[in-house]
Nucleic acid binder design. Structure first.
Lengths: 207, 207
DNA sequence: CGTGATCAATGACAGATGTCATGGTCCGGT
DNA sequence: ACCGGACCATGACATCTGTCATTGATCACG
């Protein structure tokens, strides 16, 4: 009816990017005007291409999709953001919404629904997977403090307490205290389990 | 020139599946005749649709793409297999080839190359990412014994030695010995690090 | 101002973990 | 028959971890 909706695609996997472009290109009212594979190229590309809607993956090199969302919202208020990601981590959805995203769909959803999601987002509506939304509310926000999150994130590499202490410039006793607190709050019985649980909930940093 | 190439798509993410179908559907000589989201539906679907080439992801529910490859090769010798996966783990490539796959591409590669890969595979050629092939040769096969692999795989969950011993019906001392051996062979200094390294190399089971 | 939350650190302690030596069984290859 | 390798187990040992109590410093909030 009006003009075509101009899309930007951001995904680190080139093949998925191209496939999504082919999929959305079949819709007569949609047009892919930019493709990038890194989070730190999103704003630049969106500005140059005058995109109406940006489809962003969460895990990308350079800058994650959540931070990229905040950048886009701050610098290009006319460009809406739709997160399209592999992992339906509750924490991701929460952070995406806080960053100003208009929608959040996981790649598990049928392909035919994507074009509709884009249109809804473009018309100002919000698009959120209902199941994931419920899960997000039940899981709640991260119970971890900032420092605990940092320590647990660093613990993903699998190093010893001494390694973490060195990397974070902390006493090894302090590191153990933070880890102990994180283990308690996540309901885990082991450091490794705490890392896994926190990761599944999207509570860790720089994925 | 001759007839169209009949394709089967297997990927657990519906959106990616649909997007790949749209991408490959643009090629006049290719035709997507079946789509499945589980590994244990591949053979059945391939038989019914008389697919010429099966594009399989590695991580799928029900049955992983590597085992599915072996099934296809055993029951449908006329159907070639092209693995299309997110992770370029050296172990995956090795196991895929041993299972009889004709090609192995990661989703990082540009979308335009996919159709060519399909055509090459269909004509009897092999398609392998050269970088990944080199990495596979340098990394070598898994140094872990069967039992060590099992124990390390079970350790992914993050449980204690007692948990692993219970789950595997082993003495806790035996578990610690296997873990110690795995840590030594992987060059790690921690159980968690050993898990991470083994996972990155594709040495663990049931992904 | 007082209160509470977070952060950092220390010391102490029980329990878990990683390493090693040792011994046994069961295979497959020579 | 012999050997080596994988597998299971035990016991011992040093070290690492996780927990707890306690102490201070800082900062935000009412």
């Amino acid at each position: 009816m009006t003009e075509t909706i101009r899309l930007l695609l951001a995904d680190d996997q080139a093949m998925v990017r191209g496939a999504l472009a082919a999929l959305l290109g079949l819709e007569p009212d949609l047009e892919v005007v930019a493709e990038v594979g890194r989070g730190d190229e999103v704003v630049e590309a969106a500005r140059r291409s005058h995109a109406d809607v940006a489809l962003l993956d969460v895990e990308m090199p350079g800058l994650d999709g959540l931070s990229a969302t905040a950048q886009v919202r701050a610098e290009l208020p006319l460009c809406r953001v739709l997160i399209v990601t592999t992992f339906g981590r509750p924490g991701y959805l929460r952070r995406a919404m806080e960053a100003g995203a208009s929608g959040f769909v996981v790649k598990d959803t049928p392909a035919r629904q994507l074009a509709d999601a884009v249109r809804r987002v473009h018309s100002g509506l919000r698009v959120v997977d209902p199941v994931l939304a419920a899960e997000t509310l039940s899981t709640g926000i991260s119970p971890l403090t900032g420092r605990e999150t940092e320590v647990l994130t660093a613990a993903r590499a699998g190093g010893t307490v001494a390694d973490l202490a060195r990397a974070l410039n902390l006493s090894s006793g302090t590191v153990r205290n933070h880890l102990s607190a994180a283990i308690g709050k996540t309901g885990a019985r082991t450091r490794a389990e705490a890392v896994r649980l926190a990761e599944e909930n999207g509570w860790l940093l720089r994925p």
